[in-house]
């Protein structure tokens, strides 16, 4: 397809869509007064509800159903796919990696984001300093993966061969020998996690910085008059005041980490013991053609998100109640 044809198709799609919205508005406009409210509401909500039921609710339920079937999606096998996830040694590595990702990423990203937000708060060039940390958020996971793969690049230790990856060069400068960071199990997982922390710290920093700026000045002033020092200020004023924001940031990053796929796929392809649930879902569904196991992994992902969301809701309820 030529570029012109692609843009034409795009214009065509937008036109169709504008026409649909136009018809809806036209219909809605024919009803007036409080009695027409129901009709207007149905017209406004109809496209959304249709799209969501067909595109989200039905496929979700269908996947749950398919997770009870075999690789070809033909024979009912009960919970076998789920027991595979928890017994097969490869799948156990996948689960272990996912747990490690979710335990490490949110805390480091939030910790670094919080620290940086406090350090640059009210400093000179604050907005510039923040933009530096924030920028990775605009970069795709794929782009970030390429950036970091280059950092981890390995050249064998021979005379005449120079390192081109920054990390190995630093190791060589310090007198060590270069490492295959992305191949050596199990530490290669940590080098992948670093990429996610690098991306998410900016998100944490932005949200927490806004929360810090919203701390009422009289609280800070009162604590200062009581002689509270920097650490005490952090421990007893800053952290308790921004607790709701901290919970939201931790849980949001936790959920994003649970679904991480692009980084693992781009950097290692899930080889060398680095696969995680979201990547394994893709491999099983589209590479290994094991539809049933793929569906079960997707459902597992959903089940793992739920406790994080519930924790988030409970914490926010508690802080609102206070």
């Amino acid at each position: 397809m030529s570029n012109t044809a692609k843009f034409l198709e795009m214009g065509y799609a937008i036109l169709i869509f504008v026409a649909i919205v136009g018809v809806i508005l036209f219909i809605a406009n024919r009803f007036s007064g409080r009695k027409g409210d129901r009709a207007v509401a149905s017209a406004f909500l109809a496209p959304t509800l249709i799209v969501l039921s067909v595109g989200l609710v039905y496929p979700g339920l269908r996947t749950v159903y398919e997770s009870f079937f075999d690789a070809a999606g033909k024979a009912f096998i009960g919970l076998d796919n789920y027991s595979t996830i928890f017994t097969d040694s490869d799948e156990i590595t996948v689960l272990r990696n996912t747990v490690v990702w979710v335990l490490i990423t949110p805390f480091f990203a939030t910790g670094i984001g919080l620290l940086y937000a406090i350090l640059v708060d009210k400093a000179r060039l604050e907005s510039f300093a923040k933009a530096l940390i924030f920028l990775p958020m605009a970069i795709s996971f794929v782009g970030a993966s390429i950036i970091w793969k280059f950092i981890y690049e390995y050249r064998p230790e021979q005379s005449g061969i120079k390192q081109i990856g920054l990390l190995n060069q630093v190791v060589v400068w310090l007198g060590g020998s270069p490492q295959q960071w992305l191949l050596n199990k199990p530490w290669n997982n940590v080098f992948l996690i670093v990429i996610m922390i690098w991306i998410q710290a900016g998100f944490a920093m932005t949200v927490l910085s806004a929360a810090i700026k919203a701390i009422p000045e009289d609280i800070v002033e009162a604590a200062r008059l009581d002689g509270v020092k920097a650490w005490g200020m952090f421990r007893f004023v800053t952290v308790p005041s921004i607790r709701p924001a901290l919970v939201v940031v931790l849980t949001t990053i936790g959920i994003a980490t649970l679904k991480v796929f692009d980084i693992v796929r781009t950097v290692t392809g899930g080889q060398f013991g680095t696969s995680v649930v979201a990547n394994e879902f893709y491999s099983q569904s589209f590479r290994a053609d094991n539809q049933g196991l793929g569906a079960a992994l997707a459902v597992l992902l959903f089940l793992l998100v739920i406790p994080i969301v519930l924790y988030n809701i409970r914490q926010l309820r508690a802080s609102e109640g206070r």
Partner: peptide, 15 residues
């Protein structure tokens, strides 16, 4: 509608 946010898109892809 709000609750639908928690569905990971992976769950929907194959269907």
């Amino acid at each position: 509608v709000f609750a639908l946010q928690i569905i990971p898109i992976q769950v929907t892809l194959i269907p």
